[in-house]
Structure formats: structure tokens, C-alpha cells
Simulated scan of single mutants.
Amino acid sequence: MKSLIRKLREEFGLEIRDEEIIRVALTHTSFREYNAPINFERLEFLGDSVVNLLVSEYLFKKYPNEKEGELSKKRSYLISEKNLSYLAKKLKLNEFILLGRGEELDKGREKERILCDTFEAFIASLYLQLDFNSLRNFFNLLLDEYFPSEFLDTKTKLQEITQEKFKVTPEYVLLEERGPEHDKEFEVGVYIKGKLMGLGKGKSKKEAEKEAAREAIERLGEE
């Protein structure tokens, strides 16, 4: 675990004062029962809320024009078991988890649920000893490094591009709707500063919008 602590201090510049609480965060309940006020399960409970707060604030600031529904979708994506376990692996927490013999034999270090819970407990162990700004900066760095815009849908990526280049948001216009009620096809155009930049077709408006955004991204890349 010393290499992890060293990485947190030297690479991320975190002032780690309590190494023991990090060890507790990496000690799964299958390894040993903790009846102390601070234990793996209690840290995981706290970490779940801290991660939710950090991700919510990150998205709130990163996407100032997004509606609540879209922000909620992005948050659900980022805090999913799959993605939190992915972050745990990137930090190599799986190498330091203390597991019971049964979980060790059952490849517990590769289980998404265990890795996700461990990541949340780990974040709680940092929350309890760092100032919030330091924790926020560390967490945002993880998201920026491991979840770049390539992970987001085409509409989100196009919006990021247009806001950066033109300081405007794309406008999606339904151009045509054809076919019977049970088998409709939609055609949508996406306009940037009044200029048609992409066309998309799909069985739903959302699908057509994503295709239009994809074409617009490709076109902007060629200009």
C-alpha cells in the first residue's frame, strides 16, 4: 500500500495524514469484521454520497446549459458500477484490496461490485482527511483523464465543439416525418449559427438527432 500512498502524495499532491483509514477502506468485509466506528461498510456508505456530490458538481459546472434530465443521465453513467470499478482499476486499488480467502479464490479483485464499493470507501477515506477543494481537484482530474468527451454521446460532443468554437449551441430541426404510425422515420437537420451542418435519419427523433450531430462533427473536423 505504500506505493499507493506515495502516488497520492507525489503524483496528485495530496496531503495524506491518515494512512490507516485508507487501509481500512481497502479491507473488504470478507477479510475481517470491523466493529469500530470506522470500517469498510461505513466508509462505503459515506463514499457513495460523496461520489454522487462530486460527480453532480462536476457535471453542473462542465455543462452549464444542460437540462436536469440530461445531467442526470450523465451522472448515472459516471457513477455506474462499471465505471467506478474502472476508476478503481486505473488507480490500481485492486492490487491493494485485502480479501477473505473465499473471495480471493473467487477472483474477487476482478468483481465490479467489490471494486465499485472499494472505490467509494477509498473516496470516503480521502474525504475524511483532506480539505474539500483538494478532494474535488483530485476527483475532477480522474474524470477528465479517464472519461474524456469521447465517452459522451455525439450531441454532447457537438455541443462542446460549438460552444468552444462559436460560443453557440446547435439547433436541431425536424425536417421530415414519414411512414405509418407504427414504423415512422424521422429526418433531422442540425444548424450552427443558421447554417445546416448535418443531416440524420432514424426511427426516433433522438436517434436522428444523434446521426445529424455525428455528421456535423465530421464536417467541422474537415473545415
Rank of each mutant, 00 (worst) to 15 (best):
R9I: 12
R9Y: 09
R9D: 04
L14F: 11
E15M: 14
I16W: 04
V24M: 09
L26N: 00
T29D: 05
S30P: 04
F31W: 08
R32M: 12
A36T: 12
L43T: 01
E44Y: 01
L46R: 06
G47P: 05
V51E: 09
L53K: 12
S56T: 15
G69H: 02
K74I: 11
R75Q: 13
S76P: 00
L78G: 00
L84F: 04
L84V: 05
S85C: 11
K90Q: 15
L91I: 10
K92N: 12
F96D: 06
R101I: 15
I114A: 07
L115A: 11
C116K: 14
T118C: 13
E120R: 15
Y127G: 04
N133A: 05
Y146P: 06
E150Q: 08
Q159H: 02
K165F: 10
K167C: 06
E171P: 04
Y172D: 03
R178Y: 14
K184D: 12
V190P: 03
L196T: 01
G198M: 02
K201R: 14
S204C: 07
K205W: 02
E207H: 00
K210L: 10
E211I: 04
A213T: 05
R214F: 12
A216D: 07
E218L: 13
R219M: 05
R219C: 00
G221V: 11
G221Q: 09
E222Y: 07
E223D: 11
